[in-house]
Amino acid sequence: MKPQPALSLSLIGQLYQEHHRWLVKWLYQRLGCPHDAADLAQDTFTRVLSARERLYLTEAKALLTLIAKGLLIDHYRRAVLQQQFMQALASLPPAEIPSLEAQALALEALLAVDNMLASLPDAVRQTFLLSQLQGLSYQQIAQQLGVSLSSVQQYMTRAYAACYAAAYPAEPL
């Protein structure tokens, strides 16, 4: 038996009309930038649309805030990573600073990698980065992190499983 979609398109249309301005304002208070606020509000409704089969409308504002908060966290996370990237750039000797274009590419790539590793505990994350970005052997990683060789193997297994799941989400039935 197929369940009824919890949110019909017309209901989402109504939701949009009634709460879009409120949501933009809510986001604006947090972001301080009207463009970012408008973008994130739009993204919020896009999420509602794409997930409508799984959503049940109990309290419209609570639902929108929940989704918008998730997007805000992503937004801030990107900003924080960008800041860490800039600080790392500042610590490089001038001769080694990559071109602006290479910087932009590397930053985008790092944000994508971060997205993939997002749900992993720190030890797993560090193990994977040391192996894949630094090219260290498991022995070296075990020494550096002060863990056993078999832990390193377990961490790598977990990280690969997370990457695979991020890239190939399980197909809906």
């Binding site: 990237f85 600080q87 790392a88 490089l92 990559p98 790092l110 980065l129």
Partner: peptide
């Protein structure tokens, strides 16, 4: 190497 450094500093 410079990008490696940036990557570790940013993500680790």
């Amino acid at each position: 190497p410079a990008i490696k450094h940036l990557a570790m500093q940013t993500l680790a």
